[in-house]
Amino acid sequence: MASIKSAIKYLEKAFPDVMETAVFNKEGNILYSSNNWSIENEVRALLSVWWSENAQFININGVRYSILQMEPERFVATNRKKQGHLVGAATPSMNKFLIAHISPKSKGWFHGAYPTIARAAAMIETGLEINIEKGNKQKLSRQKKDVRDKIFEEDYFASFIESANNPSTSLVQQRSEIDPNLEIEVETFLEWIKDPEGLAGFIKYYLRENDSEMISRLSRIYQQFYKTFYG
């Protein structure tokens, strides 16, 4: 139980938009759950849907979620009426599963939640704890948070492209200085790009939601990539 609690503590700090969590084994037995999230009677149904590979929706606590991604190691679903999202990950052995209920107000949850939840799931078995810098605890207003998110989403790719084109910061020259944890993050990001259910699924989701603001941001990012490779 100690490793589970450590993993949940890490998850809540690394991805604060997590509202509730539950951990269960492949037999459908609850090993941990948030005090305000009781899904004991629905875990077996969740596992059945997760393993079916073709289900389109699931009901948890009376809320209907549309399934966006479903692989043996990953589960992603959302409620169309803005009651939150479900993101789940299996442990490396596939013997245990961690599911999280994500706030409907979460920014970038579709691509940001799963990697963090997957790391937390791995911690359950390995017991490895990941330190998170506390940094400045000053609370940001909603407006400042929105500005911060926009800057990150729009400038992240621009910074990546600029670094890639700069010989002094090439991966070949800097490889010996790369932090192993950072390298894992980059490899995870590249896998997400290559995964048909990753970047493509992210874009399809916002097109389906007709989110004009996000589509506009994606268009600008695409233009930056196009300009980099084709001039």
Rank of each mutant, 00 (worst) to 15 (best):
K5S: 14
M19L: 14
E53M: 13
V63H: 07
V87W: 02
A118F: 08
F57P: 04
H101R: 15
W51I: 08
K82G: 15
H85N: 15
L47E: 08
T126V: 09
N25M: 00
A89F: 03
A55E: 14
T21H: 04
I39C: 05
P16Q: 04
D17W: 11
F75C: 00
K82F: 13
V76R: 06
V43K: 03
N95M: 12
R74T: 07
L98M: 04
W51L: 14
S66Q: 13
R74C: 10
I30S: 03
M123E: 08
V49C: 10
Y114A: 08
W109V: 00
N54A: 10
L47K: 06
Q83M: 15
N61I: 04
E53H: 15
A90H: 06
I130W: 08
E40A: 14
A118S: 15
I102L: 03
V18M: 10
P92M: 06
P92D: 02
P115E: 09
Y114H: 12
S66W: 12
K81N: 14
I67G: 09
P16S: 05
P92T: 00
G88A: 09
S103G: 04
H85P: 02
V43P: 03
R64D: 12
Y114T: 01
R74W: 03
I8F: 03
L68T: 06
G84C: 01
N131A: 13
W50A: 00
K96M: 15
S33G: 07
S106G: 05
L31H: 07
I39R: 00
A77K: 00
A90W: 11
H111I: 05
Q56W: 04
L46N: 01
K105S: 12
V63G: 07
M94I: 09
S34K: 01
K82E: 13
S33E: 12
K13P: 11
G112N: 09
S52P: 02
M123S: 10
H85I: 05
N54G: 05
S106N: 11
L46E: 05
E129Y: 13
K107W: 10
E133M: 13
N25I: 01
E27Y: 07
K81H: 13
V76P: 01
I60S: 06
N79G: 04
I4M: 06
Q56H: 11
F97V: 05
S34H: 03
I58M: 04
A14V: 09
S52V: 05
W37Y: 09
K105A: 11
K13F: 08
F75L: 02
A100I: 06
G28C: 06
A55V: 05
E20F: 14
A22N: 10
L11E: 10
N131E: 14
K9Q: 12
P16W: 07
F15V: 07
L98H: 00
E71Y: 15
N95T: 14
V87P: 00
K96G: 10
Y114K: 05
N35I: 09
M94F: 13
I8V: 09
K82Q: 15
H101Q: 11
G84Q: 02
A113P: 00
I124N: 00
G112L: 11
A7Q: 07
K81A: 12
M70V: 07
F97E: 04
E20T: 07
A90R: 05
F15W: 11
